[in-house]
Design a binder for these strands. Structure first.
Length: 464
RNA sequence: GCCGGGGUAGGGUAGGGGAUAUCCUUUGGGACUGUGGAUCCCAUGACCCGGGUUCGAAUCCCGGCUCCGGCCCCA
């Protein structure tokens, strides 16, 4: 039996490889036009880079291994963390903001299905150094334009995590996993029951995640103020607490005996000097978010405000967004991103960034760029003038792709081969041509032939 | 990790407890060494893997691998 490729990996034959390269080229051209420079990082990294903020369930999906020196390594499961590692290592003193883009393969040990593979490609950007509405709008508009440039029709949803995190901060840590799960699974009935059970139904969580489209923002503001009133006097945890506790709950399933650092009580006492400003910072966050939505209008980007977007990543802090392609079945999310603080976690100066990743394999199922793979010109020759044929091919290759027979075939067989590989033009070289100094150019579709000098052939075929 | 459906030459297929496994296509050669597509001839090439039942398994049974789709999960 022959050796099969590993599960969840793919071979890309010439047609598909060409299409992928064409789509990639269109998108990368656009990225460069927006001033985002390409960078690339290693295929494998230290395992800790990916586990630093994650629990066991995520580690289970990583292709991790030990090298011969006993180092714990991992094939990268995504590219944001490696990019931020690179930033912290080498680019912290570069002028801000930093506009970077990447295209690379990633690996996850998952069950393959449509639009999901064990080796897959991501294209994305990170704008490092700011978190104001302006950079966020730029990044979201860029994501929108990128998808549009390759004719991927999408629904774009933008949300904000500030308020939902504040509300979760007031729910006992042990109940959060179930609640997050119900939100994610869109189990509204179960969510409502659970909120009632733990007497959290007055916090506005279920109302919040229902907020979509026009007017959602104003209502979210109302909810924020209401939240303020309910929690009379300084019991609101700072956003950072909500974030850090959010991390713990999603990464471990046995919260019963988990460290009490996840308990808002601790965070509260440690941060008692900041509590007064906490809820107002939520309002500020929402105001910025409103400005972002206005800016998207300026960019001509249609986006649905959607407070149900929570994203799986724990390091997102404010604005988040996702794009869903129409007509892709179960795996229709093709793009996701938001604003996050990762540099500090990786040992650098705290810096905020906004970025997104596009699932390249998923968009390839619907992307169209309208270019066809060109086939080379065949230079067919009579064996007696092989040396001259090699010389002629060398010259013509400066202008266009040329292939020469290497099978010792007759002229007729070379013509047959040219036809089989779809060559549109054949240049014929034999003793006659060598003598006259003019080559024969044959159009394979019409069968028309003419004698031309080398330069004329170059000009003719280049202009096509 | 769970559920369902598949796996016969490079691609597509027929068959089916018993003889050399069917056909189309592709590939290489030839008819045909100065002009392709057609036709003909020749050649190469397969029962996913392992175990079981059997005198005999590609066929039946079990396990595995893998592909497709749906869950779970999704940094």
């Amino acid at each position: 039996m022959t050796i099969q490729r590993p599960r969840g990996t793919r071979d890309f034959l010439p047609d598909e490889a060409f299409q992928r390269a064409a789509v990639r080229r269109v998108m990368q051209d656009l990225l460069v036009r927006w001033g985002y420079q390409e960078v690339s990082t290693p295929t494998f990294e230290k395992l800790e880079l990916f586990t630093i903020k994650s629990g066991q369930s995520i580690i289970d999906e990583i292709y991790a291994f030990e090298d011969k020196g006993g180092r714990g390594l991992a094939l990268r499961p995504e590219l944001t963390a490696p990019l931020m590692r690179m930033y912290v290592n080498e680019l912290q003193n570069a002028p801000k903001p930093l506009r970077l883009h990447y295209f690379g393969n990633c690996f996850r040990y998952e069950r393959p299905q449509r639009g999901r593979f064990r080796e897959f490609w991501q294209l994305g950007v990170e704008l490092i150094g700011s978190e104001k509405p302006d950079p966020e709008a730029e990044v979201i508009a860029l994501a929108h334009d990128l998808l549009k440039s390759v004719n991927v029709p999408v629904d774009l949803h933008v949300g904000h995590l500030g308020l939902i995190r504040a509300i979760l901060g007031r729910i006992p840590a042990g109940d959060r996993p179930a609640i997050m799960r119900f939100i994610d699974k869109k189990e509204r009935q179960l969510l409502a029951e659970k909120l009632e059970e733990i007497k959290a139904d007055h916090l506005g969580l279920d109302e919040l995640i229902d907020l979509k489209g026009r007017g959602a923002l104003d209502k979210a503001m109302d909810l924020a103020e209401e939240l303020d009133r309910i929690s009379s006097g300084g019991s609101s945890p700072a956003p950072e607490d909500a974030i850090s506790s959010g991390r713990q709950e999603s990464s471990s399933s046995d919260l019963g005996g988990s460290p009490s650092s996840a308990d808002p009580e601790n965070g509260r006492s440690a941060r008692s000097d900041t509590v007064g400003g906490a809820s107002s910072s939520i309002r500020e966050g929402l105001e910025d978010f409103g400005e972002l939505v206005d800016l998207l209008d300026c960019y001509g980007v249609e986006a649905v405000v959607d407070f149900e977007i929570v994203r799986g990543l724990e390091y997102y802090t404010g604005t988040v967004f996702e794009a869903y392609a129409t007509g892709l079945g179960a795996q229709n999310q093709v793009c996701g991103g938001g604003t996050y603080h990762l540099a500090g976690l990786l040992g650098g100066k705290e810096t905020s960034s906004t970025g997104f990743g596009i699932g390249f394999d998923r968009i390839m199922e619907v992307a169209r760029v309208g270019v066809e793979r060109p086939s080379p010109v065949v230079l067919a020759f009579v064996p007696s003038v092989r040396a001259e044929a090699i010389e002629a091919a060398k010259r013509l290759r400066r202008s266009f792709p040329v292939v020469l027979d290497v099978m010792g075939r007759s002229l007729g067989a070379q013509m047959k081969y040219a036809s089989a590989i779809g060559a549109r033009q054949v240049v014929i070289l034999g003793p006659k041509e060598v003598e006259s100094g003019e080559l024969t150019l044959r159009d394979m579709e019409s069968g028309a032939q003419e004698s031309l000098r080398m330069q004329a052939i170059e000009e003719r075929l280049c202009s096509k």
